[in-house]
Amino acid sequence: MNGPVVALCPCRPGESLDVGPLRAAKTVAGEAGAPVAAILVEAADRQIEQARSEGDLVVWDVRHADLSPLDDAERRGPVFVEALKQSGLGDFRLAVLPAGHVGAALAAAIGKSFDAAVLGACAEIVLTAGGVEARRSTCGGRVEIVVAADGRCVVATRDASQRGPSRRVGEVRPLRLATPLPDRRPVERVGAAGRDRSVATARVVIAGGRGIGGDEGFDRLRDLAGCLDGAVGGSLPAVDAGWVPVSAQVGQSGQFVAPEVYVAVGVSGTPQHLAGVGAAARIVAINTDVDADIFRFADVGIVAAWRDVVPALVRRLRSSPEAFSPDERDP
């Protein structure tokens, strides 16, 4: 097979582009000398520019006349399918999606339409003579398997340590679609659940675990996130307790995050949780238990109760002199 490697990027207004699929596609294609492209659906200008600046690839700026920002994968899936066909990328060898439930739903749609093997959320993805081979974490992060398939394949990527932007900028090609989409589901939207910023694309994630003990603690974590331009996430027990919405659950069973800094507060550090944190993230751990596993993986640790640390840290950050500009951020 000589087809391209294609990154499929579902975009949400007001959020940064998740560059994980793009960089994974570039890395996989680059190692095999395969062409690479990206399909961005309903992307903002800023997101298109982000993709273009990754370089060395064709960026398809896809819009559909009947797609709204609230439409889910049921209606976005057919747009990606049609975009693959109309852009001439339907002979893809590998389609790369972001990890998570949106990527999984799109993978199912593309797998069915193109009779492609769906491999799940993988890392260390390589093209083989006839298909793809990739590594997937299983058994709650305790076992890794290597899966391989011939023909077209679809993967979600959990590997954040991929090739970064290059000096060349990509070429943008517009594609306007008007093919019929499935009827909108009668989903009613009420209130303002999940108001927190998305953890998936944040540069700083403040994550709370069972040790936070309640809603009030998460309010303090939101204060800290506000100081650091970050997003608040939680471990599975914190979601179970209702302290943080499921959309912000970090771990093997939740969101995969690849921030620059991951501040883990009251998080024990199970394999299931850490499987959701990119290996390149600097981890700051705050925990009362000096033997907590999280300290085995942390760069910086404080052994203390969050109540003694977080409010004081917020005060300190709020009262310190002018913040750095983005260009100065190079710790």
């Binding site: 650091l228 640390v309 840290l313 950050l317 913040a323 750095f324």
Partner: peptide, 22 residues
């Protein structure tokens, strides 16, 4: 980080300074 909690907080704030919100 070691020392008093106050000192640890100060050191952590310095570490996180590059990511402070504008």
């Amino acid at each position: 980080l070691t020392g008093s909690v106050e000192n640890q907080v100060a050191e952590l704030a310095a570490y996180l300074q590059p990511w402070r919100a504008l």
